[in-house]
Computed example of a mutant assay.
Amino acid sequence: MAARHCAVLGSPIEHSLSPVLHRAAYEALGLADWTYDAHRVEEGQLAGFVAGCGPEWVGLSLTMPLKRVVLDLGTPSVTAALVGAGNTLLFDHEQGRHRVENTDVTGMTAALVGAGVAGARRALLVGAGATARSSLAALAPLGVGTVTVMARSAERAHASLDPVATHFGIRLLVIEWGTVPTAHHDVTIATAPTEFAPEDAARIAAVSPVLFDVIYDPWPTTLGAAAQAAGAVVLDGVDLLAHQAVGQVKLFTGSDLDVTVLLSAGRAALAARRDQ
């Protein structure tokens, strides 16, 4: 069988865990002729990179800052178009019109369900950027109807999140950064790369019994540590990365994979890095 190539693109890319996860997936699936590498690619270089990929290329994973610009290089799925970001490109070498998908959304939903969140009504969202848009879309299948958003700018938060919230019929309540709601929330998703003071982290962690902090290195964040200390269910960026990678592997290879294979590989790689 001819070699099949996939890769993750972004900038910076040197510390990406994606090669570890996808190579573990190919090994588990017995795909000895498949390769997966990392390439540093800037926004202005992406179109040229894609154009230079021959028929042996199956797909690409995209990380920052390429999730927006990739939408122009193929046909976006409904989800990718809605949240304004794609993290997966599937080559169509015959027709020349590639597909752009977003497995961050489905991966986040799957991670929450896997952690026991079968349903939810209210959620707290920390941050209002691109990852927050994906988070809104991920919360919708769980039944979330109201989302409180902690944002530095209410105007920018509404501009970013209103289209997604309207699509799913979610009511948004935007509060000032650092303001902690008093009402109970079923789940908190932290999307902003901000370290809170320990006392602030404890107040935010007390809002709900489930915290999903999309950071994975350094870990734990002050918010993650506070949630763990409070006895909450805590998910981190490795949970997101592994679950979205399961979706990508399915798109690339057509095969299903148990997420525990990727979670184990990702956490082992992180532990090895920290021991260096």
Score class of each variant (00 low, 15 high):
D104M: 02
D104H: 02
D104S: 03
V105I: 03
G107S: 07
T109W: 00
A110G: 01
A111R: 03
A111T: 04
G114L: 03
A115S: 06
A115M: 03
A115C: 05
G116L: 06
A118K: 14
G119Q: 13
A120V: 06
A120Q: 08
R121C: 02
R122G: 00
R122H: 10
A123H: 01
L124T: 03
L124Q: 07
L124V: 06
L125Q: 02
L125I: 02
V126I: 15
V126L: 14
V126P: 02
G129V: 02
A130L: 12
T131W: 06
A132L: 05
R133V: 09
R133W: 07
S134C: 15
S135P: 12
S135I: 08
L136I: 11
A137S: 09
A137R: 08
L139I: 06
L139E: 03
A140Q: 09
L142W: 13
G143H: 04
V144H: 00
V144T: 04
V144W: 12
V147T: 01
V147N: 00
T148H: 00
V149S: 03
M150H: 00
A151I: 06
R152V: 00
R152D: 02
E155K: 07
R156T: 08
A157F: 08
H158Y: 12
H158L: 12
A159R: 15
A159F: 11
A159I: 05
S160N: 15
S160V: 08
L161A: 05
V164T: 01
T166V: 14
H167G: 07
I170M: 05
R171W: 11
R171E: 15
L172G: 00
L172K: 03
L172T: 12
V174C: 06
V174I: 14
V174F: 01
I175C: 11
E176P: 01
G178Y: 04
V180I: 08
V180W: 08
P181V: 10
P181T: 09
P181Q: 11
T182Y: 04
T182F: 03
A183Y: 05
A183L: 07
H185C: 10
H185I: 03
V187F: 11
A190V: 00
A190D: 10
T191A: 06
A192Y: 08
P193K: 04
T194F: 13
F196M: 13
F196T: 04
A197P: 07
A197R: 14
P198T: 01
E199I: 12
A201Q: 13
A202D: 14
A206S: 15
A206W: 13
V207F: 12
P209E: 14
P209W: 14
V210L: 12
V210S: 13
D213T: 02
V214L: 13
I215G: 05
P218H: 06
P218S: 11
P218I: 05
P218Q: 07
W219G: 07
P220C: 05
T221R: 11
T221C: 05
T222I: 00
L223A: 02
L223W: 05
A225N: 12
A226M: 09
A227H: 09
A227Y: 14
A227R: 07
A229I: 06
G231K: 15
G231W: 04
A232P: 03
